[in-house]
């Protein structure tokens, strides 16, 4: 490796102790201060640029309709009643309820089935385990779109079309979740469950009392991923749901946009309400999420 060679060749010049000449930013306090201000300035500009669409959305959601197209992003008169109007025009509360209900069920079932499978792969000894796990990993690359059509046909045959069960059950099994939780369970020191095994605990006790609590950061990350993925799930409900009272938020939004699309201020109010639960969820759970993404390698 070239970097190793580089390491050897430059290490010769490494000074004995830290501090003094050895610290980066050798030009001293002023240099570091300048760097600090420059970095923060650049980051702040970038962050504000990223946020502009969100800001416009929020401001537009409070505008009277005829001001939406104005260059001035601020409403001349703030209209919080736009939010109430959304509920008058579409059963928005119903969409909320459907989305949250389906997402909670999927999250619960997916965490449970994934954690159980992860336990079998990470904490139990059995012949062929690693081969089966590799097979499992391979299924991660099967594109959802290939299995979507047969799953639709299957749902029709099972008479689950246009039902909560049809939305929940097929989404409740995840190879990704298994993979992610296995990564977390592998980090549990073996001494812990071995002590329990020695005491004569059964596999379910070891799973429930030791592996699950210790894998909690992973479980939280998976739960948030699954919840948010399902809350925003679009393709599957789109082809599955026909009745109005079963529409989830994304389907309801699509319908609202296609029927009342000219009322940009109301559409934006609906979008804001759609995004708020996600933003709250993200802010409270991001510590776990970041670790989950970095451990799981990828999601989405």
């Amino acid at each position: 490796m070239t970097s190793d060679e580089a390491a050897k060749s430059v290490r010769v010049y490494e000074p004995a102790g830290r501090g003094g000449l050895g610290t980066p930013g050798y030009a001293g306090w002023w240099y570091r201060r300048g760097q600090f201000i420059a970095s923060h300035g650049l980051l702040a500009v970038l962050a504000i640029t990223m946020l502009l669409p969100f800001l416009w959305m929020v401001l537009a959601s409070f505008k009277p309709l005829d001001e939406v197209e104005n260059l001035n992003p601020f409403p001349s008169r703030w209209q919080p009643e736009n939010y109430a109007k959304v509920f008058d025009q579409v059963p928005f509360a119903r969409y909320y309820f459907n989305s949250v209900l389906v997402a909670l069920w999927v999250t619960f079932l997916q965490c449970l089935t994934s954690a159980m499978a992860a336990f079998a792969f990470a904490r139990l000894q059995w012949r062929g385990r690693d081969m089966v796990f590799r097979l499992y990993l391979a299924t991660l690359m099967i594109p959802g779109i290939v299995t979507m059509i047969p799953n639709y046909v299957l749902t029709v045959k099972l008479q689950l079309l246009d039902s909560y069960l049809g939305l929940i059950v097929p989404a409740s099994f995840s190879a990704f979740g298994t993979f992610l939780l296995r990564q977390f369970m592998l980090t549990i020191p073996p001494a812990l469950d071995e002590a329990a095994w020695m005491d004569g605990a059964g596999p379910w006790t070891v799973f429930w009392d030791i592996a699950l609590p210790l894998a909690r950061p992973g479980l939280i990350a998976l739960a948030v991923f699954t919840f948010m993925g399902n809350y925003g799930s679009f393709f599957w409900p789109l082809i599955l749901i026909k009745s109005e009272h079963l529409r989830t938020l994304p389907i309801g939004m699509l319908y609202f946009d296609s029927v009342y699309g000219k009322q940009t201020n109301l559409i934006m109010a609906a979008s804001v309400m759609n995004l708020i639960p996600l933003i709250v969820l993200f802010v409270v759970s991001q510590k776990f999420l970041v670790r989950g993404i970095q451990m799981g390698g990828v999601k989405g």
């Binding site: 449970l112 089935t113 994934s114 159980m116 499978a117 336990f119 079998a120 139990l124 000894q125 059995w126 012949r127 385990r129 299924t139 099967i142 290939v146 299995t147 059509i149 047969p150 799953n151 046909v153 299957l154 097929p170 409740s172 099994f173 190879a175 298994t178 596999p203 799973f207």
Partner: peptide, 28 residues
């Protein structure tokens, strides 16, 4: 060998995988 316990723990996920991924793959 915890193969029996492992089978039990894998069952829900494997079942879901067979019905909603492997089966559909072959079918498609």
């Amino acid at each position: 060998n915890d193969i029996l316990a492992a089978a039990g723990f894998l069952l829900p996920n494997i079942l879901g995988f067979l019905v909603f991924t492997a089966g559909p793959l072959v079918f498609s």
